[in-house]
Design a protein around this nucleic acid. Structure first.
Lengths: 201, 201
DNA sequence: AGACAAATCTTTCCAATGGAAATATTTTAG
DNA sequence: CTAAAATATTTCCATTGGAAAGATTTGTCT
């Protein structure tokens, strides 16, 4: 069945087109620029069309957030393959995390704001879980607390995540800036405590 | 001049009354429940009254955010006086940070969201600076990287802040939860790397 | 005291928004 | 080929932030 891309009466792929257009609006105008009507206008449909596809504004935001998490995971994994040592992988993932947050601050904000992105959504949950699994892999074997128990592993994951996420969030909200004496903002890597992997230092 | 608290024609203290009512609405109904009209109704004035006092919705949010930072600083300082050792002070401040975030999640969100709270405001800036100074004091002398330079100090501040802020943010956004095997969420203290103060371990 | 200016607050109006409800159009199924 | 399901539109509504102009109170200056 050939796809007729000329003035389809039912468009054929409205949902994806809306998603794409929504992501575009967010990049250019931010979250505040995204309305059902602006989105519909950009795609050339009525303002209730997106509502049909996503149920509500929150539904749209949730779908966008899920797509955000997929791209987020990809960004973190980007440098992972070329990294040789585990420390390099840790560095690559952490830098990917921050890089994505800085490159797409509005999308990142949606992803981590429950009032926008509904975390109970299957779509979001699986995509977010996949993102998180990157951190889990990376933190496995980190000897932060010299222990090798599930308990210690769990705490290490959360510490790692908190550290990177807090850094990215504070950067994006404009809270971190050069200090009074002109000291430059340290990179995420400089902010890390001294880590090493068990048996690899 | 005695204060006539009965049906003032010009109310006398509308700005503070609006602030108080606004904080109340945020506690009970969250940010989404706060509108100029709902706020005005609660105080018994027209919906343009708050606009006169705060310029705009964002102006109102900014004023609320500033008040939030003042209460935030107080919360962090609360346990500081009774703490004897510096480690206890560190613990008290960090726990105060997280406790405030969890007790007032919506207010906390406003404080750290530039789209709500305008950080260029003098009011916000001084209050936020005062909050930050708690962390600065606490992190002074922490031997994380064994150095005693302004540079290392600056990095330590940001690490400490990122860690605590990320943890609080992830908690509030519902991202951190008991893990698959039922492992409980570690406290902020358990998430901390092994810290000590120079010459005090 | 009186008058003019400044502030405070209200009334009225408007455009934009998310959403509900009903209808029209196209596709699919039997 | 027809009924049912899906997709999309039109129309309507309540709510919201804000602009503009007017009313009321307070302050100041002579």
């Amino acid at each position: 069945m050939t796809v007729n891309n000329r003035k389809k009466y039912h468009h054929g792929d409205l949902r994806n087109a809306l998603l794409e257009a929504g992501l575009g609006i967010i990049e250019t105008d931010g979250v505040s620029g995204l309305s059902l009507r602006a989105l519909a206008a950009k795609v050339g449909v009525s303002h209730t069309a997106p509502k049909n596809h996503f149920g509500s504004m929150k539904g749209l935001m949730t779908a966008i957030g899920a797509e955000g998490f997929r791209r987020f995971a990809a960004e973190m994994r980007a440098g992972l393959s070329t990294a040789s040592s585990r420390m390099d992988k840790l560095r690559a993932a952490a830098e990917g995390y921050v890089r994505f947050a800085q490159a797409h601050p509005e999308l990142f904000r949606i992803m981590f704001s429950p009032e926008y992105c509904d975390f109970k959504s299957e779509d979001v949950q699986s995509a977010a879980q996949d993102s998180y699994s990157v951190l889990v892999d990376i933190s496995k074997g980190l000897d932060w607390d010299k222990a090798d128990t599930p308990d210690a592993q769990w705490r290490t994951e959360i510490m790692l995540w908190s550290l990177v996420h807090g850094y990215a969030t504070l950067l994006n909200s404009g809270q971190i800036d050069d200090d009074a004496s002109g000291m430059p903002v340290p990179s995420i890597w400089e902010v890390f405590p001294e880590y090493s992997y068990r048996g690899e230092n």
